[in-house]
C-alpha cells in the first residue's frame, strides 16, 4: 500500500478541526489542573487529620484510577444526579481534575524542597504567612516545579484522544472518520500522528522557554 499524499492533504482540514478542539480542551484543562493542584496542596499539609486524610484519599483515588473511568463517570453517571455537561466540557474538566492530582504532588514536592531555614528566616523577620508564601516559598518552589509541569502539559495533550470515548471530536476521532470515508486509514492516522508530534514538540519548546525565562528573571540561572 503506497502513501497517497493527496488523500493525506485532503484529511488535514478535518484533523485541524479536531486539533482545535483538543487544544481548547487543554487550554481549559491545564490551567484547571494547575490551580486545583495548588489548592489541593494546602489541605494535604494541614496538621488536622480530618482535613488532611479525606483530601489525600480523594487525590489517591483519582490518581490511581484511569482517566477513562473518570471521564465515563462524569459523562454517564453525573447526569443521573442532575449534572449534565457537554461532551467537550466534561472532557476539559475531566482532564483538569485528573492532572490536578499529579500537579498537586509536584507542587507538594516543590514546596517541601524549600529548606526549613527559609521558613525560620521568614518568621525571624516577622513576615506574614501570605507574604512568606508569596515572596519566599513560591518563588523558590516554582523553578523546581516548572519542568515536571511542562511534561504534564504534553502528557495531557497526548491524553486528549481519550476524549473520543465520550464523543468529543478531536484529532484521532477525526482521523478515524476520514479513514472510514476513504477506506484509507494509513494517511489519516499518519497525519494525525504527525500533528501530535508537531504540537508536542512545540509544547516542549514552550515549556523550556518558560523555564529559562523564569530562571533568568529570578537570578537563579
Amino acid at each position: 500500500m503506497n502513501f497517497d499524499w493527496n488523500v493525506a492533504w485532503h484529511s488535514v482540514p478535518a484533523l485541524l478541526d479536531g486539533l482545535l478542539t483538543a487544544l481548547l480542551s487543554i487550554a481549559i484543562g491545564y490551567p484547571l489542573a494547575i490551580a486545583l493542584g495548588l489548592l489541593l496542596v494546602f489541605p494535604q499539609r494541614s496538621a488536622r487529620p480530618w482535613i488532611r486524610i479525606p483530601v489525600r484519599v480523594v487525590v489517591e483515588f483519582i490518581r490511581s484510577t484511569p482517566l477513562l473511568v473518570q471521564l465515563f463517570f462524569l459523562f454517564y453517571v453525573l447526569p443521573a444526579f442532575g449534572v449534565e455537561l457537554s461532551a467537550f466540557a466534561t472532557g476539559a474538566i475531566g482532564l483538569g481534575l485528573h492532572y490536578a492530582t499529579y500537579t498537586s504532588e509536584v507542587f507538594r514536592a516543590g514546596i517541601e524542597s524549600v529548606p526549613t531555614g527559609q521558613w525560620d528566616a521568614a518568621t525571624a523577620l516577622n513576615l506574614s504567612t501570605t507574604r512568606t508564601w508569596w515572596s519566599v516559598v513560591l518563588p523558590q518552589a516554582i523553578p523546581k516545579v516548572l519542568p515536571p509541569l511542562g511534561n504534564y502539559a504534553i502528557a495531557m495533550f497526548k491524553d486528549t484522544p481519550q476524549l473520543t470515548a465520550i464523543t468529543v471530536l478531536e484529532v484521532l476521532s477525526a482521523a478515524r472518520a476520514e479513514g472510514a470515508q476513504t477506506f484509507r486509514y494509513l494517511e489519516a492516522i499518519t497525519m494525525a500522528g504527525l500533528l501530535y508530534l508537531l504540537v508536542s514538540l512545540v509544547l516542549a519548546w514552550l515549556a523550556r522557554r518558560v523555564e529559562q525565562r523564569y530562571a533568568t528573571t529570578r537570578g537563579i540561572a
Binding site: 525560620d120 523577620l125 507574604r131 515572596s135 523558590q140
Partner: peptide, 29 residues
C-alpha cells in the same frame, strides 16, 4: 517585632538580591 535572629546557615532568600533581602521585611512588615 521586637527581636530578630541571625542563623548559622545565614538563611538569606536566594531568590532576592542583597538589597531586596534587606529591604523587603522593613517595607512589608
Amino acid at each position: 517585632r521586637r527581636m530578630t535572629m541571625v542563623f548559622q546557615q545565614y538563611n538569606l532568600f536566594p531568590n532576592m538580591n542583597v538589597l531586596r533581602n534587606i529591604t523587603m521585611a522593613p517595607m512589608k512588615v
